[in-house]
Deep mutational scan, measured.
Amino acid sequence: HNLTITQGKLFFHYNPKLCLSEIHKMEEVSGTKGRQERNDIALKTNGDQASCENELLKFSYIRTSFDKILLRWEPYWPPDFRDLLGFMLFYKEAPYQNVTEFDGQDACGSNSWTVVDIDPPLRSNDPKSQNHPGWLMRGLKPWTQYAIFVKTLVTFSDERRTYGAKSDIIYVQTDATNPSVPLDPISVSNSSSQIILKWKPPSDPNGNITHYLVFWERQAEDSELFELDYCLKGLKLPSRTWSPPFESEDSQKHNQSEYEDSAGECCSCPKTDSQILKELEESSFRKTFEDYLHNVVFVPRKTSSGTGAEDPRPSRKRRSLGDVGNVTVAVPTVAAFPNTSSTSVPTSPEEHRPFEKVVNKESLVISGLRHFTGYRIELQACNQDTPEERCSVAAYVSARTMPEAKADDIVGPVTHEIFENNVVHLMWQEPKEPNGLIVLYEVSYRRYGDEELHLCVSRKHFALERGCRLRGLSPGNYSVRIRATSLAGNGSWTEPTYFYVTDYLDVPSNIA
């Protein structure tokens, strides 16, 4: 807008934040220059609390790290170098490059900038070799853009010569660093050979998330399962459950009422301010606690030095998902009996873990797994792929695949051998790939016309006998059925096997 004052003059007093240069501009645009008398524009009460600059400061050096910015700028000295009290560095987070010096300023003089007072450097006698002032900004957020400017702080001049310097606002972004852990990993099994893994992005990506790394490792069953005799009275049979499938998407929606109208769909109840505040506090606490764990609990591995020492970490090797089922080394339970199943799973520490690289999504279907087997899954978020990966501390989750139908069934015939004193040795093959492992066998036998009897055969007993022995049988026709019990439950009964026990007292003698 054009402003013209045809008559009258300007009068400025007691404006401590208004620089004289701005008042002189007002004289020019209003056409009143030359009308004012000496005392109409006070030299001592206008701009006496402001830094009124008329020179431009330029930054000469900028260096960044993930949490620091090192700045240096060209030296500046007023005509009387004693008038320079120091520099004021202003900075704040700036997602967009549209910041002005006066953003967030209120009537009390406060604003949204963080201000650092910096002492002037030592003055050199040689004007050509003056030290460049600077400042190291610490405690910054990774991968965050900051708006920065600097200006001088000078003393009051009796001659009211307006001098000083100020830089333009520059924008500097800190470097990326390792992201925080992925949030809320959930693993479920939808079949006997697959596990579905879902997660949420890290709360602090500290860069642009480029991919996720998912490692999985087959877990050995508890050692007590191999040692305890679950045929003993009072000892509860062990059981394991597989990871249940995901709930429906509708039930997972946030901010939804727990109660549904019987007449149909209901609208979600909005969260109160107290609920939102509580969630923010919980989120802040979780982030602080995660940072504490990362800094205190997890110790970084030592990389190899120039002395030739090897990095103890196993090298990563990509495998196809079809090879995942046989990740671990199978060892027989008892070496003397080769027909026992290889369900003991000690994992070799030198073995390469299978892994998958996930790009542009937060889910993965891990296939080719062994049925009813526990897996430990390790999830890392990465925001750099080359020249070397920059990934987060791992988040861990466990899951067990679903049982395989008929995996616990005894394959092959049940054979028998009759000894003296009416002892019958029953023999059968253990299931080759049971659900988890076989903890015991149930032997059901009966003599024709009598009630059915049951015998429990422990895992250890089966390994020693290759089956079991029935003792003290009365003469007669017998039928026997056997079924295995694994961590997933009972298998199917075998087809009945028949044998006849004679009275050993009636056996004919070869003595003449």
Rank of each mutant, 00 (worst) to 15 (best):
P244W: 11
E417S: 09
L470G: 00
I276G: 08
P238S: 06
G207E: 02
I209L: 12
I377C: 09
A405K: 14
V414L: 08
E217M: 01
N510P: 12
T340I: 10
L213H: 10
T502L: 12
V214P: 01
S243W: 08
R318G: 03
E430R: 04
F289V: 12
S474L: 08
H371E: 08
D291A: 10
V297F: 12
S320T: 09
N383E: 02
P244L: 11
E227M: 13
G325L: 04
P475L: 05
Y478K: 00
V345Y: 12
L505N: 09
V329A: 03
R301V: 09
Y498D: 05
G374M: 05
I377R: 00
E227C: 10
G308V: 15
S398R: 12
V296G: 11
E310G: 09
G489N: 14
Q219T: 11
N490H: 00
E433V: 13
P332V: 05
P475N: 09
F298T: 11
I366R: 02
G368L: 06
E217P: 12
A335F: 13
P238H: 04
K317L: 13
K287M: 09
K278H: 01
G308C: 14
R483M: 14
P431C: 10
P332N: 03
R400H: 13
P434L: 01
E362F: 10
G436L: 10
N360W: 14
Y445K: 01
V299T: 07
G207M: 08
G467Q: 05
Y375T: 02
E442F: 11
R400N: 05
Y292K: 12
S458C: 14
C269F: 14
K278E: 08
K236E: 11
V297I: 10
E442W: 11
T272F: 05
T210K: 15
V327F: 07
P387R: 06
T340H: 03
V443F: 01
T415Y: 13
K361R: 04
F215Y: 11
T328K: 12
F462G: 02
N422F: 04
D506L: 08
S239M: 12
T307K: 14
R471L: 10
V507R: 12
W216K: 10
P270K: 11
P434V: 10
Q219H: 13
G207K: 01
F419V: 06
N206W: 06
S509C: 03
D222P: 07
V414Y: 01
A220N: 10
K302Q: 09
W428F: 03
K287E: 14
G449T: 11
E452V: 06
D323E: 10
G322A: 11
D385A: 14
S315M: 12
D291W: 14
S398Q: 14
T497A: 08
I438E: 01
S486C: 01
F246L: 10
H425C: 03
R459V: 15
R313T: 12
Y500M: 05
V214G: 04
K236D: 11
A335W: 05
